[in-house]
């Protein structure tokens, strides 16, 4: 049953993305609203899928790649829906929803069966650790989208070649603020995610830190975002440099999430 909801969510997200992209091209108000509400509808359906799966499995369903990708996608849409209330950037959906759609499509490609939970994961730390980590990641995904938008807009204004994106994208200041806001929200979440994981590791594996590839790469990600935050707060990094960092950070984050699981083996590999 959760699979049906999951697939419904996927289809609704596809429509939401199509509307959002249609808005980006046509700038028709209707598409903007349709995109937003469709994504909201998809989010509700997706939430049902997660709750259903939780009920069917009996544990927090973020334990394999299908579940993780699905939850990541859900988090991104959720974070977008919250942030768009404050930052009224109508084209944001066009940059964020494709990301969520790609993730949920990827999720649909991995085995979806509910398997008995590995004993090592049977802990109340599981939901705390993974939810913190993924909501943090979703924040960084939004920072990434804002960074992409910033770089496009900045290039146009700097080169004085005013293209079609000039009118569509918001002010550089708004995009930079959004980037910063996502960073200040995402960084504590990532930090807490790592700390909670470390505490959990101590009780599960007997050591706070064991340089498993996931841990190592998470630390690299953390350092990168820490450098960006530090640069922003002390020397006033902003704009283009901050946007590039957000892109870089997200690239490493995606590798930490997918690359490590698919290419490297370690304690975090559960497939």
């Amino acid at each position: 049953m959760n699979i049906i909801f999951f697939q419904a969510a996927l289809v609704v997200y596809l429509f939401g993305t199509a509307f959002s992209l249609a808005y980006l091209i046509s700038l028709r108000k209707f598409f903007s609203l349709a995109g937003k509400y469709t994504l909201f509808g998809g989010f509700i359906v997706h939430s049902c899928a997660l709750v259903w799966r939780y009920a069917e499995a009996g544990y927090t369903p973020i334990t394999n790649l299908h579940e993780s990708l699905s939850f990541f996608s859900w988090s991104i849409v959720g974070v977008y829906l919250v942030l768009q209330l404050k930052y009224r950037v109508e084209v944001l959906a066009a940059f964020v929803s494709p990301l969520a759609v790609v993730l949920i499509i990827l999720a649909s490609l991995f085995p979806k069966e509910i398997l008995p939970l590995a004993p090592v994961l049977q802990s109340f730390w599981l939901p705390i650790h993974v939810v913190l980590a993924f909501v943090g990641n979703a924040m960084f995904a939004l920072a990434f989208a804002a960074g992409v938008m910033y770089l496009i807009q900045e290039r146009q204004i700097k080169s004085k070649k005013i293209g079609p994106f000039y009118h569509r994208l918001p002010a550089l200041k708004v995009l930079d603020d959004l980037n910063y806001r996502c960073l200040t929200l995402g960084f504590p979440l990532l930090t807490l995610g790592i700390i909670s994981g470390s505490v959990w590791a101590e009780s599960a594996w007997g050591s706070y830190w064991s340089w498993d590839p996931k841990e190592t790469w998470s630390l690299i990600t953390w350092f990168l975002y820490a450098a960006l935050l530090h640069g922003r707060l002390t020397v006033g990094w902003r704009g283009r440099r901050a946007a590039i960092f957000a892109l870089l950070g997200f690239g490493i984050l995606v590798f930490t999430f997918l690359g490590v699981n698919l290419l490297l083996t370690g304690l975090h590999s559960y497939n």
Partner: peptide
């Protein structure tokens, strides 16, 4: 342009 760079 000023608004596109600086916001409001």
């Amino acid at each position: 342009l000023a608004k596109k760079i600086l916001g409001p």
